Amino acid sequence: MNAGELIEVVLPGKVEPEGLYVRRGYVPAAGPGQAVVRMEATGVSFAEQQMRRGRYYDQPPFPFVPGYDLVGTVAAVGDGVDATLVGTRVAALLKVGGWASHVVVDAADLVPVPEGIDPAQAETVVVNGITAWQMLHRKARVRPGQTVLVHGANGGVGSVLVQLARAAGAHVIGTASARHHPALRDRGVTPIDYRTEDVPARVRELAPGGVDAAFDHVGGRSAVDSWRLLAPGGTLVSYGTASTRDDDGSKQWPVLKLLGRVWLWNALPNGRSAHFYNVWAGRALNRHRFRVRLRTDLAAVFQAVRDGDVTAQIAAELPLVRAAEALRLAESGTVAGKVVLRA
């Protein structure tokens, strides 16, 4: 790759992973208040899997460059940006655009990556880490000694969430297929095989009084069960509708239905609470507050990585130009952790 060459992966429409294509051009310039980041690592998250099916709630119109987050080095800055930022390793939350060799980002949205963390390691805990941290500490406010239920405990968000919950002193019950159970036990998690076991019945055996918090990315029936498994005063944090990934029809309806349930559950006089978590919530209303929280919380996640409380779980690393292969691998359900694309 030439220093002045831009390489980006384009999602042209509702295609199989092999329908992605590589586009080449010139590296963009930074405008006022912006920075050009040379990507070192970006990832394949569930969002991209939904986007290629046209199933992500607020994805842009096709064609576009996917890539929810990235880690890289600042290559250039525009007017009004501190020139000493050049050469600094940073992380950025983007929603789209990360699958590119160079990305223009508002400098105020960049978060420094501490020394000693490899770009691929850091990348695994950007969107996954900020999601897990904010759900655990800002929504559920989990305390030592409490019991939490994490669905998809081996996944990108789930694997970070169970580690942060254990570091916070919580007892963790996690759902995952049987092949992931040994790794979960090593992390102090009590696993449940969602494929062969009756999950609600097993959770009731393990936590007869209910769980203090449940984190559900599945939606549908799973979210209802999770709500019913809460202890008095417990909190449900729902953050996805993975069960509808391959459905046809409206991509908005599953989310709206879930939001309606959350509203209804919170109206019930039983002391329990429900939240639908969206990492972008509040950004439009108060961008400064959003940025402060992002910087503060992601710094805490990076510190947890440095302290050894969180181990970055990398499923595979592939070059950017093999994005189709990476997406296919991430969708296979055969890997644990996050598939990372490198420049």
Rank of each mutant, 00 (worst) to 15 (best):
I7E: 08
R24Q: 13
Q121C: 14
F276G: 00
G282S: 11
E8P: 05
R38E: 12
A83I: 08
L93Q: 04
H180E: 08
T73I: 14
H217V: 10
A231Y: 03
N2W: 05
K95I: 10
V339P: 03
A312K: 04
A3H: 12
V150F: 00
A324N: 10
A312R: 00
L93G: 00
R306L: 15
Q134A: 08
G4N: 15
Y56H: 12
A178I: 12
L20Y: 06
V224P: 00
E115C: 12
A323M: 08
P112G: 09
W227Y: 11
V150W: 02
W253Y: 10
E325D: 15
A336E: 14
S238Y: 02
R287Q: 11
V126M: 09
Q313D: 15
Q121E: 15
I314Q: 02
Y26N: 14
V148Q: 00
G209P: 05
G234E: 01
R328Q: 13
D79N: 13
A300D: 12
S243I: 11
A167W: 06
L11M: 07
V172R: 00
L256A: 13
T241S: 12
A213I: 01
D58V: 14
Y239P: 01
D309N: 13
G116M: 10
A274C: 10
D216W: 05
T88D: 06
V44L: 08
G13S: 07
V237N: 00
V262F: 02
V172H: 03
P60S: 12
H217D: 09
E48Q: 14
W227L: 03
G31E: 04
L206Q: 08
L230H: 01
P182C: 10
T73H: 10
G31K: 06
R322M: 07
A41S: 06
D58E: 14
V292Q: 14
T244F: 09
E115T: 15
P232C: 09
Y239Q: 01
F302S: 04
L285Q: 15
G233W: 05
D118G: 13
S222G: 07
M1D: 14
I117D: 01
W263L: 15
M51P: 02
L256I: 11
A132K: 04
D212N: 14
R55A: 08
W133H: 10
A336Y: 07
V301S: 04
L93K: 01
V22L: 14
G87A: 07
R143Q: 15
G98S: 07
K95F: 06
D246T: 13
V103Y: 03
L320M: 11
V142D: 02
L318G: 04
N2A: 14
R52K: 14
V65T: 15
Y56R: 06
R322C: 02
S101E: 00
L329W: 06
V211P: 00
V262Y: 03
A304D: 05
V22I: 15
L318I: 09
T196G: 09
H217C: 14
L93W: 02
R261L: 10
Q313K: 13
T124A: 07
V105R: 05
G19W: 02
L236Q: 04
R185Y: 06
I173W: 01
V111K: 01
V172L: 03
G282T: 07
